[in-house]
Computed example of a mutant assay.
Amino acid sequence: MNEDNNNRTKWIHLRLSPDEYAKVHSQFKRTTARKLSEYARKVLLSKPVTVNYRNASLDELMTELIKLRNELTAAGNNFNQAVKKLNSLSQISQFRDWLIAYDSDKQKLLDQIEEIKNHIAETSKKWLQS
């Protein structure tokens, strides 16, 4: 069994100014390399470096969509809790009539919230794949 020995035993010591280090580190952060040493090895050995490019406007959109999804979920939960509480007051006939009238409205609201959440999830999947 003759295995290829990939242990790295040799060191290269390199001194950088704070500005140089900041530039190298910022370039490293844009890549898929997990460690700075991995990035430096690829650059020094002229191997391809995979760089991630992100669309800033899409990032802002995703932030807003996540906030919207959270607010919609909270609104749906609050509405559902209010209806459940009113439903417990069923001995009063006026509340019972109100509940029957608003039951369909509640379902429409919850369906719309679910549709928006699904749309946000689909948009997120597309964004993460690009």
Rank of each mutant, 00 (worst) to 15 (best):
N2W: 12
N2M: 15
D4Y: 14
N5G: 02
N7E: 13
R8A: 15
W11E: 14
W11F: 13
R15S: 13
R15L: 15
L16N: 03
S17R: 13
P18Y: 13
D19N: 12
E20S: 06
E20A: 05
Y21H: 10
V24K: 03
V24P: 00
V24Q: 05
H25P: 02
S26P: 12
S26W: 08
A33G: 01
A33E: 02
K35N: 08
L36M: 03
L36Q: 07
S37F: 00
E38Y: 04
E38D: 04
A40R: 07
A40W: 02
R41W: 01
V43H: 01
L44A: 06
L45M: 08
L45W: 02
K47T: 02
K47L: 08
P48E: 00
V49T: 01
V49S: 00
T50P: 04
V51L: 00
N52L: 02
N52G: 01
Y53I: 04
Y53R: 04
E60G: 07
L61G: 06
M62R: 05
E64C: 03
L65H: 07
K67E: 12
K67T: 15
K67G: 11
N70Y: 10
E71P: 11
L72H: 07
L72F: 04
T73P: 12
T73N: 14
T73W: 14
A75R: 15
A75K: 14
N78F: 11
N78E: 08
N78S: 13
F79P: 00
F79E: 14
F79G: 11
N80P: 06
A82L: 14
V83I: 13
V83P: 01
K84S: 10
K85P: 11
L86V: 05
S88I: 09
Q91T: 13
S93A: 11
S93Q: 07
D97R: 03
W98F: 11
L99D: 00
L99I: 06
I100S: 03
A101P: 02
A101D: 10
Y102E: 09
L109N: 03
L109R: 03
L109Y: 12
D111G: 12
I113G: 00
I113Y: 04
I113P: 01
E115N: 14
I116Q: 03
I116S: 02
H119V: 10
E122N: 14
S124G: 09
K125Q: 12
K126Q: 07
K126R: 11
Q129F: 06
